[in-house]
């Protein structure tokens, strides 16, 4: 059996196993477990697509929260019925045509992805004129702009009140289905010669150009693909928590994604997946530190936000002591497990 067939088979087995686990959880798992698993899948989607820009292209992009917000709002506005919208928009009515349309969930998710992509395309021209710290600041700015617009454009987003009472369409199958598709497609892209060109730009842009690689085209490609999947994940997120407001899409979200991909290993898709899973699990497990703790003799009152302190400490420790994260730039692949000479 050659490697290609074996890998395909193993991928199939892996997917069936994942399906089995999800089935068991959807049948017997508690709401708590299911919520963690859903979060995990959405974080995986976000982290893997974020890693495509920050890890593979080596661009410090700080505005993925904007893509997620656009995806979330677009999808939410599409799935809500005109009736629900009227109930939601009490201060200022929703403008036409949003007030009238309604679409099925899948279509809404895709529309969310497409809207995020369109936005990414529009900002790509100013963004990719600069590099390094400047690019980080420009993207950070765009992320903030979108959040502020979500607050201000009451006729579209309902302002700070947000959208409430979305149908909880997101279940384990949707979230993990999207995560699997995202990971597969983005891994394929990274392993293709397009991915090679992106890594070449990351390593040395001048040399990449001299070898015939057009930086703008490839960075734009990565940016758009990343935005699309982030937008879809945003739609999933909206229909998981069923209430969205601008405060959900602050720089904080970007910061969390940054923790995931840095801890996982910048430039490694496997690392992004691991980082996302650890973050989703850790976020719940560390809830203890925010609740009052009884230490026998005395009781520590719960400090809200303590989890973020711990995450930040972890991030600092990783940056100081294991700068390359869990995976470095390596990938966990079947070849790596089974072959003596992986390729």
């Amino acid at each position: 059996m050659d490697r290609q067939k074996r890998n395909l088979l193993l991928n199939g087995v892996g997917l069936i196993l994942l399906g089995g686990v999800l089935f068991l959880f959807s049948r017997y798992g508690s709401d708590y477990h299911i919520r963690i698993l859903n979060n995990m899948a959405i974080f995986i989607t976000l982290a893997v697509s974020y890693n495509l820009i920050n890890g593979i292209c080596g661009i410090l992009h700080l505005g993925p929260n904007a893509f997620v917000a656009i995806g979330a709002y677009t999808a939410a506005l599409l799935t809500m019925s005109p009736m629900e919208k009227q109930l939601n928009f009490i201060i200022q009515p929703l403008i036409w045509p949003f007030s009238a349309v309604q679409a099925p969930f899948l279509l809404s998710l895709l529309a969310g992805g497409v809207m995020a992509t369109v936005f990414a395309f529009l900002i790509s021209f100013p963004v990719f004129r600069v590099r390094g710290d400047y690019l980080a600041i420009v993207t950070l700015g765009f992320g903030e702009v979108i959040r502020v617009l979500c607050n201000a454009l009451q006729g579209v987003t309902n302002g700070p009140l947000g959208l409430k009472g979305l149908s909880p369409f997101t279940n384990l199958w949707w979230s993990w289905g999207v995560a699997v598709v995202t990971v597969l497609l983005i891994t394929r892209l990274i392993n293709s010669s397009y991915g090679l060109a992106m890594k070449a730009i990351r390593d040395d842009e001048t040399a990449a150009r001299a070898m015939g690689v057009d930086p703008f085209r490839h960075l734009l490609l990565a940016f758009l693909i990343s935005a699309f999947f982030s937008g879809v994940a945003g739609g999933l997120l909206a229909h998981l928590i069923t209430t969205i407001s601008p405060s959900l899409f602050t720089f904080f979200l970007t910061f969390n994604l940054l923790i995931m991909i840095v801890v996982g290993g910048l430039g490694s898709t496997t690392g992004a997946v691991l980082g996302a899973m650890l973050f989703a699990w850790g976020g719940e497990a560390l809830r203890i530190v925010e609740s009052p703790m009884n230490l026998g003799l005395f009781t520590i009152p719960g400090i809200p936000g303590m989890r973020m302190v711990i995450f930040s400490v972890i991030l600092m420790v990783v940056i100081i002591f294991v700068r390359r994260g869990i995976m470095g730039q390596k990938e966990l692949s079947w070849g790596w497990i089974f072959d003596r000479n992986p390729r």
Partner: peptide, 8 residues
């Protein structure tokens, strides 16, 4: 000054 793609 050699400019290879070092991580590749």
């Amino acid at each position: 000054n050699i400019r290879l793609f070092n991580d590749l």
